[in-house]
Amino acid sequence: MSSRIAQIRLVSSHPEVYEPCDDSFALVDALLADRTNLLQHQPTLCLELGCGSGYVITSLALIVGQAAHYIATDINPHAVKVTRETLEAHGVHAELINTNITSGLEKRLKGLVDVIVVNPPYVPTPEDEVGREGIASAWAGGENGRTVIDRILPVSDNLLSKKGWLYMVTLTENNPLQICLQMREKGYASRILVQRLTEEENLQIIKFWRDSDSQVAEKENKTVPAKVMESFLSQFHIFPFLRGSNNDSS
């Protein structure tokens, strides 16, 4: 049986809200590709950070089903309204909160979220464009596009349950290899589920999950077993452009 996802003709819109684009499609494709695992995972609480038009959270709710509870946040007040309309047009429900990332949820949601999806503002921009009102909040990512991503990573680590998974969109300019290594230090394994070359962007959808191997390694202050590291890095050998552009310092 093919899984339903959100239909573009039913996605609501507003001039100040980011419309579903290649990055949104790549993220939903990754969720579809991981559908069997998601269904076996049986998440209770799912969260989207920065829901925009609602295309992704609606698709997640259609893929996983209404046995889970969904929460979606956006800093843009127009976006949460548009998301509500998109959800209603598809007959699914998510709780919406107009807030900055997860502000107001951090205390009580700590360790409770089984799935987080995020298509962050990843475009490299001047730092002062980050967090501006309206549609710019959907893309302005500051230096290397990392300003908001670097806030989201510790927040996600705090909110994810022991079995929690994080799906995140990155751009090559964000240096995804460095993001994965940084998350490994926190005890997460990672895998690139989808990589996509569009006319303008090289996108990756990365899945992170808590990995007992790397947690043990972290606790005992041992290095990650060579085999694990090799398999992890091999993804980046396949796509050499993913290594990012951090050669300029040498």
Binding site: P77, R84, I97, N98, T99, N100
Partner: peptide
């Protein structure tokens, strides 16, 4: 408003 809390500070 319309079922959506505004937690922006």
């Amino acid at each position: 408003s319309k079922g959506i809390p505004n937690m922006l500070l």
